[in-house]
Amino acid sequence: MNLRTVEFQIVETSANIRRNGLMTAAAVTNAAACLFVLGAFALALWNLHSMTEQLSHESRIRIFLLKDVPFEEAQALESEIDTRFGNMIEERTLIPREQVLEEFILKFPSIPDAGLGEENNPFPHELQVKLKDPEEWRTVTEFARADGRVDEVRSGRESGLEPLLKLRRMTRIGGIILVTFLGFATLLTISNTIRLTIYARRREIGIMQLVGATSRFIRFPFLLEGVFHGTLGALLGGAALLGGYTSLVSWVAETIPAFERWLIYSADQLGILFGGLIAIGLLFGLIGSWMSVSRHLQSP
């Protein structure tokens, strides 16, 4: 394709966009709506995934030692765990039974002390372990349970970590499936709308074929238009989505401040989402128009 042809194609494409204003508006609005829905689902799933990710990372394995185990032995167990699983551990804390009692009394001041004190302390020493990958909880738990100094280990099912990990896996796999499915639906919807704009101009395509235009020449302006529809739709849909989302985050911050920390809000993350939507809009516009115009180019 020479420079003159490219120039002609660009001029024709912009003229077609202007002339077919209503169809252009329909295609752009449709792309915007589809990409808004796709983006909203992706954002909701991303938030849910991030929430489960944070929660599972914050969960700790709690190892309660037998009441008669001295603090030195608890320290010995801590260093054994550290030696064996050090590379898997993000953080560990050994809480002496005196501190556990103190915290209990502070937490429940209304409960009469009932003689609770150094001599009458019902709590054992407690070792809390936070893993880099929460999925590894079974390994550490099984090791601790087998130790004779340990009375009880709470993790996984007992501490609610297992269902959380399940939810995290589900949001990861389900999210990919759902977003792929929605993405496919979006592609078909955008492609169908572009097909309508092409159908409205099938006469023009027929004339182009008649006077000897190559398929590549005929296809090119439609691809440009598809890219325009998809990208502009993504810009509008993405802007509406981010506008709405930032308002929602502000509302959450004011109404339920504790919940704010779970939400995705950094400029980087929202930038990735916006950029992703624009890339999808551009790509879907291109693929959609390619699919649609190819149907009209079928000839013997």
Partner: peptide, 22 residues
Amino acid sequence: RLLSKKTAAENVGYALDVIGVP
């Protein structure tokens, strides 16, 4: 089979445009 949004000259010229005539 003329393009209604193009003038007579543009319709005729279109046959040359699509084959890249200078």
